[in-house]
Amino acid sequence: MLIDWFTVFAQVINFLVLVWLLKRFLYRPILDSIDAREKRIAAEIADTKAKRIEAELQREEFQQKNADFEQQKTTRINKLKDETEAERVRLLEAVRLESQGLRKKLQLALKNEQLNLQVAISQRAREEIFSIARKVLGDLAGTSLEASMTDIFIRRLNTLNDEEIASLQSAISPAINAAAQPLLIRTAFALPTPQCSLIETAIKKILGHDIPIQFSIEPDVISGIELSIKGQKISWSINEYISSLAKRVDELLLSPMDIEQADDTHSTTKTDSHEASA
């Protein structure tokens, strides 16, 4: 008989024990560990999903923020540009005005300088001409400058036309009647006595009557003789020549300055037009 019933019974027991032992030591721990791992993986996946959603949200938020920031930046940059441009225009205008003021000042200073120079030149020229004339006359004819000047003055008195004589007389007459004011002869230097008497004689001849004559020395009347009474004035001096010389010198001096002025005006206009186009 191949079947031993005791063995059958023992094997049944053995098998049941084996089932219990394996359940206890194999299936349960293994299944528990698998379940734990699956739960953990599921939790991690869920966590990852949540984090991804959160990250997406944050990304969107940051993108929005970035866009806003860009917009703000652009707006501010544009505003700054406008402000800078306005400031630039304002500063340029201020500089232009200031430069204009400075140029005017400079022109004024130049003009003053020119005037001073003119005065100095004419003063110097008068003195020089006077000294040269004196020397030349002395060398050439042995006559003094004073004598020559007196001659010329007398000649001039003699060449007065009737109208001039009449006006002179009319000027003298009330003067004689009222305050007996003397006729004033002003010279830059002391006239020698013969010359004084020659002049007196000549005046008497023209006026036809005596009149007190007073000689005075005025340094202003450079190298000349001047007769004056009550607004009437007859004179001869080197001043006339000097004035003519000064005029010519002025013309000579002014001509390059005029060109400069013209240039300045031209450049200012150019700058203005340039700014306007900018």
Partner: peptide, 11 residues
Amino acid sequence: SLSSTVALALC
């Protein structure tokens, strides 16, 4: 062993 297999079959 037939006894074993019978035991398993009985189970």
